[in-house]
Nucleic acid binder design. Sequence first.
DNA 1: CAAACCGGTTTGTGATATAAACCACATACA
DNA 2: TGTATGTGGTTTATATCACAAACCGGTTTG
Lengths: 101, 101
Amino acid sequence: MMELDRIIHEPVRLQIMATLGGVDTADFKFLVSTLGLSKGNLSSHVDKLEVAGYVQVTKSFNGKITYTQYALTPKGRKALEKHWMTLDKLRAASNSKRKSE
Amino acid sequence: MMELDRIIHEPVRLQIMATLGGVDTADFKFLVSTLGLSKGNLSSHVDKLEVAGYVQVTKSFNGKITYTQYALTPKGRKALEKHWMTLDKLRAASNSKRKSE
DNA sequence: CAAACCGGTTTGTGATATAAACCACATACA
DNA sequence: TGTATGTGGTTTATATCACAAACCGGTTTG
């Protein structure tokens, strides 16, 4: 059957993935504020995406304070694209209202 | 922020909604077999959709055995359409890879 | 020194997706 | 007549998981 990747499908993670899909890189603060998430929530979701190999996490220093950036991996980008296509198929089914019978 | 209706978004329910979107009516057996769900799973998901007012449940008799049919309510159809649009917006964000910088 | 802040991570818990168990009824069959 | 088997579901127990609160190592503020 139609496989919707639950790692990606979860709303918060879908938003993270979609956001990362539109930029080269995004940092923690940016994601927290634009997506309106608590820090803990973002942290654990992004962790799942990293474990799945969909997001690459890069830690560095911005002066003295730590600075974490996120980016889609090629695998993540591919998985996201596939996810949109799967949703397309579902949607197509939903629109083809069959003529009576 | 971007509100994804979790009642609809959950994969199994999205598939149920999409399927019902494509037909006037579907029965229990049909959904179980085409979506590959256990009976219990379908039952509880469809119950949530009914409580949400998205699906109408019609019970009747086919000879002596009970026969349950499901259909989208107008509210459900509208909510599904809105859901697709919300996903569209997310997806648009994901594709607008901004030119360098 | 203490207090408050920064940038996160770890944790506790309430919600929930799922299949197993169950139920009422019907048919089969010995 | 049992009793086993199937049909069409619903109820339940469990295992997972999304979320925010609490925490943490370090930093700046006073």
